[in-house]
Amino acid sequence: MDTKNFRKKALLQKDWHWEIAIYLFLGGVGAGAYVTGAISSFLGWTDMARWGVLVSFPALAIGLLFLVAHLGNPLRTYLAASKAGTSWISRGVIFFSVFMLVAIIHIIGTLWVELSGTIVLALSVIGIIFALGTMVYTGALLSASKGIPFWRSGIMPILFMFSALATGLAATVVFVYFFGSTPFLAGIAPVVALIAAALILGEAVVVLFFLHAAYRLPESRDSAVTATKKGSFIVGDVLLGLLVPLALMLYVGFGNAGGNTGTLMVIAGILVIIGGLLLRYMVLSVGMITTMYASGFEFKLQNKPEPKSPIGLVPPGNV
């Protein structure tokens, strides 16, 4: 075990873990997929439109389940919208609820009940607004946390918005590939791939910018350094989640992938989705508790800083 940074490890926040990461991730996927679907419907990309909207609601619902499961008192969740004036959770609950409502009506309209074009248009516009609100909320939630300097960044909402759009588009593409009509994205595959590439590139730039900004601030430097040393982040998110799919999407967009177009885009899509989840997880897991300063001393709120013993108990001599 790496004992060198045991004191830094003792500073990591341990209360928001993978449930929240999944929630933030699925919230982003749902919102991104809805935006993809709604915009696709304007462009007349029927498959994309259909699956974008269909993916959104289940993603949000499952995400919400993870959130509620993490609460200490799930039965009181209904109280969470009480303070929208100050609390980003309350705002998020409102965004999330309205957005989920719009999404479910849109899904009903897509699958079972014929809705008029005006209603669908109105739904889409409201849905897109609240979807964007949801994306921003997942980031703003973290950036309002004064106790965790790494999260207290104005870039956080932008980062999560890019990631949400990229993962949402990726999720839509994957679903279209497996369940949509053949041929896969007839005629529009290169355009979709280029949009995806642009989003991924945007996300990559924001990730870089975010980490650099965190590194430049002394109080969040340790978190940024820890992040860049995390294998799951560097390999899982940066390499497999951003660079490889970016290359694949660019290849599909500019090159001539021919018969491999679908396969390559699905692989890229799945990688983007996994990368998005790992990004949320990284951001949560490297959050370190803030430091206090008094009379020239530095004080840290550590939680049981003690390295694990490489050998067992050794009683002395013959006792």
Partner: peptide, 20 residues
């Protein structure tokens, strides 16, 4: 030796104890 490393401390009589 780095911070947090586990070490043996041994006296001249060969008695030793461990710690970090």
């Amino acid at each position: 030796i780095a911070e947090g490393d586990w070490v043996w401390i041994e006296n001249t009589a060969g008695h030793r104890v461990k710690g970090w």
